[in-house]
Design a protein around this nucleic acid. Sequence first.
DNA 1: TTGTACGCGTTATCAA
DNA 2: TTGATAACGCGTACAA
Lengths: 333, 333
Amino acid sequence: MTVSRVFSGRAPVDQKTRARVLKAARTLGYRPNQIAQSLALSRTRTIGVVVPEISHSFFPEAIRGIEEVTYREGYHLLLMHSAETVEREQDALVTLESKRVDGILLSVAQDVRSAAPYRRVLDRGIPLVFFDRCVRGIGAACVGIDDEESACLITRHLLQHGYRRIAHLAGPRHLLISRERLAGFIRAHAEAGVHHDEALVVQAGFHEDAGHAAMRSLLALPSVQRPRAVVAINDPAAYGAMRAVAEAGLVVPEDIAVVGFSDDLRAALMPVPLTTIRQPAYDLGRAAAERLIAAIRGEPGVRRSQTVQTELIVRRSCGCGGPAPRGNDTRRA
Amino acid sequence: MTVSRVFSGRAPVDQKTRARVLKAARTLGYRPNQIAQSLALSRTRTIGVVVPEISHSFFPEAIRGIEEVTYREGYHLLLMHSAETVEREQDALVTLESKRVDGILLSVAQDVRSAAPYRRVLDRGIPLVFFDRCVRGIGAACVGIDDEESACLITRHLLQHGYRRIAHLAGPRHLLISRERLAGFIRAHAEAGVHHDEALVVQAGFHEDAGHAAMRSLLALPSVQRPRAVVAINDPAAYGAMRAVAEAGLVVPEDIAVVGFSDDLRAALMPVPLTTIRQPAYDLGRAAAERLIAAIRGEPGVRRSQTVQTELIVRRSCGCGGPAPRGNDTRRA
DNA sequence: TTGTACGCGTTATCAA
DNA sequence: TTGATAACGCGTACAA
């Protein structure tokens, strides 16, 4: 029909005809059916976003960044929640493929083992960009931070302020960011010429309870073996660790220093404000969305990964600030 | 084709044929195209979710509740962000209609004026359920809290503890929840036989800056007219108010008590922990999703609204706790 | 400038 | 139990 031309706008239509069509559309309440459009064009202008968690403030912020870009570019968001499980993540991927999204943004679930499902998506020709939690070497771009360098930075900060026995509450074993943060933790020790005790690297996870449990196991060590400082995999784990320290009748940072990773909403507000690495979630979301849209458009160089800048935020929990200031002051390194 | 019967499962297919089809599907990497299904069935199994904000912790929590239910029921989520503007909200509605979602969950933007766009959605026969920020009387269900009662409850708490000059930082004028919370504020006064000074009801908004500005205007009043306590429209506004109080060299709650609404993540962690109303965002999201899916299925009684229970959370900022306890203790009323 | 035929991949319906 | 045909509502390609 000529109606299509009127609504798509990219074809010559007589003024009078156009007016007639528009008027009829108005009275009939007509709106182009995007489902039919999608079928005809095999293009949905929809992007799938798969997140392992919805509430942890990093992800809403990242989604806000993604939405900002996709809205501007005329794409819409199909939001899927993997709940940190591979099963639901694969399910999400299959669904997104079935729904013929134009591309996928994904942050991997904590118990991933295999890259096969991602490879299949790529093999089908669906553009895929990882954000924050990436899988490398399968030909998909990754937009994240430099986890190794950031972990090294915050560990170095502790070492430079005289801490020697430093523990690490590590993240899920199979996740790249866990391994990279651990690598940064180790590199900082190597650079400082300080031996790191492997007994002080304990498995934890991303949640407060995991950090709490891991910290308890460290506190159960004979007192000569106990850490004097702790580098947690992220802020919630650090909160759990701080709680365990308090429950043991000890004080942060005087007895044990604790630092986190991501600078979530609560970090500055904790009873002992948390020293941490600021992860610019919003910018990261924007960058990831831009990368994906470039890939969808077939622009070159889209497989290249991108790193957004982090920042060390020094607060009281590391005990590195000379006479500990009162209140919620925040200084940047 | 017979393929359709195999995948849909609801039609008799011979075992051998089924096996042949599945094997072929596997080798070809075939997956049913949901776009084509949607066109044929005029059913997308997709729900549109429109939120005015993405990051404010209430909405991620609500979305998590929504996702929990929709995942279980086999629906997917198209997430739209109105950014508190009517323009983008209308845009979202038009898009969702074009994308033929099976139903819509919406929390209205702060500057809504007209219910016409919602009416149009309903006229098209698209099920619509409001959550948290509702529009009443247009035949759409609303899943929210009892704003009037909750505001009355927290105001009454202040009155019962002897506060008399109480201010209200009101929400956007055209929003139902603003009006209802104001009504509750007034009713509490009436019930207590306390006159409320209309000069102490000032327009603010949902953000910290709005609360800050509104509080400054109250602090600029001659000291006899100044409020002794403040009921903020929500927690972020209360944070802004607390900041303004501190900047004026005054102390919460000794000089001015401040209470909020929603119990977001930071409320318990503020330097002076905030007394507030707990809004169960997750449950609210679940209830709204259930209501919508019932409506999509054409079940009866779906236009009925639903109220989820709130709770008064008493912390230090209201100064009602006898000798003010140190730390972040939280007591329930 | 406008209209017609065909295909996008599926389901419903009816026939075999 | 399976196959054929006609929708679903659009865009493309071509003809008028």
